[in-house]
Computed example of a mutant assay.
Amino acid sequence: MSQTFRHPEILEAARRQGKVTVEGLAAQFGVTLQTIRRDLTDLAEAGRLERVHGGAILPSGTTNILYEERRNLNQAAKTEIARACAAQIPEGSSVFLNIGTSTEAVARELLHHHDLMVVTNNMNVAHILAANPDCQIILTGGTLRRLDGGLIGTPTVSTIRQFKFDIAVIGCSAMDTDGDLLDFDIQEVGVSQAIIAQARKTFLVADLSKFKRNAPARIASLAEIDSFFTDAPPPERLLAACRGWKTNIIAVSEQAP
């Protein structure tokens, strides 16, 4: 297979998996490790990928990956994370679900919950939960961000401050190894901070690929999160910090039979 045909497939694999490895791609395409290294270098120089030890990831920085591409990243992990999170949401709860593909996955897992009141600034979440007749749905006001169906801005924050939620379920675009949650849009950060302030408990849903990415705006620390639902345990140093903060870590890989 020529380089011209490999590059789109490499990019598609990176979007799907979050990371590609030199050895895995060499085996997939039946070419040498050096050939794949050249491919990854070319894609990195073009700004399509970011080189890391042993492979490459989607580039990070000051702009986020397209929403449809994010939907396809780590889908199986997101589903398991969402299932674990939904299991900790009692029926009869008031819940906030914010913007993100991981919170949309949680919404799907709430389709059979009873007597819920869900407030959201995510039009996709509202559309998903419309199929649950036993769920009251309240959409915040705000400016529509067409790329992901999110509502942001001062009206969104004003609506959030009228509530006290039993549980808030939030996502993030990236995570720092010191436990800071990060995002790209400063307006969305302000919304997330208001959500945390108005929640009795806050759940974070995020797979560990978020540690491979960077974003410029800080939302909060894991110290402010009650439970962090993820696909595998984070680094030991962060685990120790979470124990000190009393942040509960639920890694779905540890729950698998």
Rank of each mutant, 00 (worst) to 15 (best):
V95C: 09
R6E: 05
I128Q: 12
E9K: 14
E109A: 13
D226L: 03
R145D: 10
I225F: 13
L144S: 10
L116D: 08
P59Q: 12
A232P: 07
R38T: 12
F165M: 06
R200E: 03
P155R: 00
E254C: 07
R108F: 10
R243M: 06
K19M: 07
F229G: 12
F184N: 02
M175S: 14
R146Q: 08
Q28S: 08
I219E: 04
I160Q: 01
T154W: 13
G244P: 01
S192L: 09
L116F: 04
R15A: 05
V20K: 05
F165P: 00
L151V: 08
A130V: 11
S60N: 11
R218S: 09
E69Q: 15
R15N: 04
K78P: 11
Q28E: 08
V106Y: 09
A44P: 11
L182T: 08
A197W: 06
T202P: 03
F228K: 13
R51C: 09
G142H: 15
T120N: 00
C242W: 05
G30P: 00
V20T: 08
T103Q: 02
T140L: 14
P59M: 13
A130Q: 14
S253L: 10
W245E: 05
R108W: 09
V20I: 05
L66P: 13
A217G: 07
Q3S: 05
R83V: 07
E80H: 13
E9F: 04
F184M: 01
P90A: 14
D148M: 03
I225C: 14
E104R: 07
T63M: 10
V119Q: 05
L208M: 13
I196Y: 04
G61K: 11
I170L: 01
E91R: 09
L97M: 03
P59C: 14
N124P: 01
A215T: 10
L73G: 01
D185K: 02
I10W: 05
R38N: 13
